[in-house]
Design a protein around this nucleic acid. Structure first.
Length: 875
DNA sequence: TGAATCACG
DNA sequence: ACGTACGTGATTCAC
């Protein structure tokens, strides 16, 4: 225990010091950052130099302190804190939060007193204490165990005051510093002292007599007429000055030394804050010097041709190296593997031939570490190898720790942890037209380094996730899901090209008709797809009134055109043209190109992308196939079962986000509405408009529905006014009435925002995190956006957690029931399956059951389902 | 490459 | 007063 070391910092003093030592820097969000930057530099320096086990930053509380009752003008005449500095204080506090350093302030007391009290407490226990400030007053605290460091020039240069140093420099003891202040005063604190007595005289007197009291006892002995006169006339003032300069060592603080334990920073939080503040050098420093336990070393990757003599360990990291990022289509080059000792690379031809490898990969008990296990699973499956026993996934671990970390390849993550010896995929393969397959030796080395990085990063990432209480989310939800998604992607959805083509023919015909009508009305031909040209025609040639502008010119977005529909008949045709044009280019032409040789479309689900925990779907996106308008919905008839005699089956959660909100907010009215299985929008209309069920008009229900949506999105009057086409005032009135009607929701929204401001992040029910550094921004727009996000993310994210859990349960259930039915797609609140006809009845029982019991909320989850011969018919 | 638009939940 | 609904991806145009 003798190793304990307490560092006590004077926050205000160091902030001032940093502010005046550095030029007034501004970052691109318009915030001044010089004090924050200087403060950060000081902090890091101190942490590196002192390596404290306990740490505290003390702040001055409000304007008045107990000293003001002694002397009204205490600290009088001080300049007001410059606003450029004031605005930086919240960030310094946030920074300290991110560093997980205790902060403390106490009403009526100054930072000095808090520090004094704690340093004496530490002293008494014989613990080493280091006090850091810019104020020399603090040197009075120096003692056998306490060193006081005072900033010298600049920001990182500190002068250490031990009792010995003070004796050398001034010839007095630390407590005599107080007497010195009593005699000479302190201009900066407006402490008067004795007129005519400066440092020299004060020291001379103290060396001779010892203290203010002793000086006055011995007044007669003092030589110098003027000095004696000044002392005599200002006796009371001298005592008062001494009292003012005395640091309180028995302040009524409510924290103890044990509360100051320092266990290092929360790197994620620090990183997001640096990113927000645009502290580039600190960010770089962080990623290179941060994790010193990761060694950079030369590696030797052995290219293995004879796989049967391989010695494979029970736990290995591996990486499947391939040319293209699309693992569902790309050629695989080979597989690298390491058990922490040797690193090997096996070309794909050998992998495919090797019974030994195949056996190792399929064996659940052989633990595999990789990055992007979904890609590894699906690409190996294409090589005829099933992989089981995934134990670690660097991609998912990184994403769960912070969904905003943009992962491009293993190199990008590894670099964050001090590995700079892996090249980016782009550097190895080249980009654009120059992209080509490098020779095998280079590939082997590249792939080998990735496997090695995965091997070494496992424990670091797992610790981070455990520290954040996210290990379960990562290990029990995301990792099992990765494999299930890999299966779904590999299975694919059968798509009938001839149906798409038939719809395409009709669309093309109608589009060319519309085109000639539009050209006729416009009096000229032009590119209807060009917002620029269209804007010129509508607002300049025809002379319609522009409603909204974009950065580049007139807005011609649908909501704008709809408002102009009555002004000119061309608008209707343009809207139809746009709508059909979208269907044709994105869905008919786009999807047709994506049908593989097996007659199926294989989308890829991005599992480590969205900020809320949802999946996204790319290449192509099958999560935005039209449904709202009948013409588009027909596209769904091209998605059919892949086997003869099979049926498409779909099940979706009804109002999952509002149910989640009801649960999380514990709003009684909302909970009972769902428990009684009422139509939530109608019920909302009844409560908000204060009418009975029969009196709810369709317009009232529509309004209530829009308000419900708004609530989920983190409501704003403007947003609601746009969606309902009403004024902001009217929208605000709806919101007020709504929140008065559902007080639990109001409370929840307020709590979640203030919680986010305090912690810097929000969480879902399963502990998925989203950091919101901008929630304390002084920029209104940035802050408001972050506040709405704070309200929306726990709701959207919990809904995502729930359906992910349902997918895992569903996969297990199908296996347990030995059913042939296959899960094909997930569309946020909906699961789509294909199954043999004879299984449909059973499926229709199991799926809703599993989905509804995925997570136990205080309101029931409700699932609606349907089946048919195509996706179109599952309605 | 970014902006605008529009498809979905 | 500030200017916006939350989360995505694909296509097209224009630079």
């Amino acid at each position: 225990m003798s190793k304990e070391k307490i560092v006590l910092l004077d926050g205000n003093s160091l902030a001032y010091r940093a502010f005046f030592a550095l030029p007034l820097l501004t970052n691109d969000s318009g915030i001044h950052t010089n004090a924050i930057y200087g403060f950060t530099m000081m902090l890091q320096n101190i942490l590196n130099e002192e390596k404290p086990t306990h740490m505290l930053v003390a702040w001055d509380a409000g304007k008045t302190t107990f000293r003001h009752s002694t002397f009204g003008e205490y600290k009088g005449g001080r300049q007001k804190t410059p606003p450029e500095l004031s605005e930086q204080f919240p960030y310094m506090r946030k920074l300290l939060n991110a560093f997980q350093i205790t902060q403390y302030e106490l009403d009526q007391y100054e930072a000095d007193d808090i520090i004094g009290t704690l340093s004496k407490a530490g002293d008494a226990k014989g613990i080493e204490v280091v006090v850091i400030s810019g104020d020399k007053d603090l040197t009075q605290l120096a003692s056998e165990h306490t060193t006081v460091c005072i900033t010298r020039k600049g920001i990182t240069d500190l002068e250490m005051y031990t009792p010995e140093h003070i004796m050398e420099k001034y010839g007095i003891t630390p407590p005599q510093i107080i007497d010195m202040k009593g005699l000479m005063g302190d201009a900066s604190d407006n402490i008067p002292g004795v007129p005519g007595v400066g440092e020299k005289t004060a020291l001379k007197l103290l060396k001779e007599y010892g203290s203010v009291e002793k000086v006055y006892e011995s007044l007669d002995l003092i030589s110098g007429k003027k000095l004696k006169e000044n002392l005599t006339n200002n006796e009371e003032q001298a005592y008062m000055s001494k009292k003012l300069a005395t640091i309180e060592v028995e302040a009524p603080i409510t924290i103890t030394i044990d509360d100051l334990q320092y266990n290092g920073p929360d790197d994620e939080n620090v990183k997001t804050l640096y990113e927000e503040l645009k502290f580039k050098t600190l960010l770089e420093k962080m990623s290179t010097s941060d994790e010193e336990d990761v060694q950079i070393e030369d590696i030797n990757v052995r290219i293995e041709m004879d796989t049967e003599i391989l010695n494979l360990s029970d736990a290995m990291a591996f990486h499947v190296e391939m040319y293209d990022e699309n693992y569902l289509a790309s050629d695989v080059s080979g597989v690298s593997m390491t058990d922490g000792e040797s690193i090997i690379y096996i070309p794909i031809e050998q992998v495919k031939k090797s019974a030994k490898l195949k056996e190792w990969f399929v064996d659940e008990s052989k633990k595999k570490y990789t990055s992007d296990s979904k890609a590894a699973y699906a690409s190996m499956l294409r090589c005829g190898i099933e992989v089981n026993g995934f134990e670690f996934d660097l991609l998912l671990a990184t994403y769960i720790a912070n969904p905003s970390s943009s992962y491009t390849d293993v190199a990008s993550v590894a670099k964050e942890f001090g590995y700079s010896d892996i090249e980016s995929d782009e550097a190895v393969y080249g980009k654009g037209a120059k992209k080509k397959l490098p020779e095998e030796g280079i590939l082997a080395d590249h792939a080998g380094r990735k496997a090695q990085a995965v091997w070494k990063l496992k424990s670091i990432m797992e610790k981070k996730l455990r520290d954040n209480e996210q290990f379960e989310l990562y290990r029990e939800l995301e990792m099992p899901l990765a494999k299930i998604l890999g299966k779904m992607e590999s299975t694919g959805v059968k798509t009938d090209l001839s149906i798409l083509q038939q719809i395409g023919i009709e669309l093309t015909a109608r589009l060319s008709e519309l085109e000639s009508i539009i050209f006729e009305m416009a009096g000229q031909s032009f590119n209807i797809n060009s917002p620029k040209q269209l804007g010129e025609i509508l607002f300049e040639k025809i002379g319609l009134t522009p409603i909204k502008k974009t950065k580049t010119g007139y807005s011609t977005a649908a909501d704008v055109l709809e408002k102009l529909e009555s002004e000119h008949e061309i608008i209707g045709f343009i809207l139809t043209y746009r709508q059909l044009g979208k269907l044709n280019s994105t869905y008919i032409e786009g999807l047709s190109k994506e049908i593989h040789e097996d007659g199926k479309i294989h989308t890829r689900f991005q599992q480590a992308l969205t900020q809320t925990g949802r999946l996204s779907s790319i290449n192509p996106n099958l999560q935005n196939i039209p449904i709202r308008l009948e013409e588009g919905r027909k596209i769904r008839s091209a998605f059919v079962p892949s086997e003869v005699g099979w049926i498409m089956y779909a099940a979706d959660y009804s109002q999952i986000e509002l149910r989640v909100l009801a649960h999380m907010s514990q709003d009684e009215k909302m909970i009972s509405a769902f428990r009684e299985d009422e139509d939530i929008h109608t019920k909302t209309a009844m409560d908000v408009f204060g009418v009975d069920k029969e009196s709810v008009s369709s317009d009232m229900r529509r309004t209530a529905k829009a308000v419900n949506f708004g609530i989920v999105y983190g409501i704003s009057d403007y947003g609601l006014s746009q969606s309902l086409n009403i004024t902001r005032k009217e929208a605000q009135k709806f919101i007020d009435t709504y929140l008065a009607t559902f007080p639990g929701v109001k409370q929840y929204m307020e709590d979640i925002v203030s919680d986010a401001k305090m912690k810097g992040y929000v969480v879902t029910m399963m502990n998925r995190r989203r950091y919101l550094p901008e929630i304390t921004s002084s920029n209104f727009n940035l802050r408001s956006f972050a506040e709405r996000t704070a309200m929306n993310t726990p709701i959207q994210g919990t809904a995502a957690d729930i359906i992910k859990k349902a997918m895992i349960d569903m996969d297990a259930r199908l296996k347990a029931e030995k059913m042939e039915a296959r899960m094909l797609l997930q569309v946020h609140d909906e699961l789509i399956f294909e199954a043999p006809e004879h299984e449909i009845a059973k499926l229709n029982k199991i799926v809703p059951e599993v989905m509804e019991s995925a997570l136990n909320l205080d309101v029931p989850l409700k699932v609606e389902s349907a089946f048919g011969l195509s996706w179109y018919e599952t309605k």
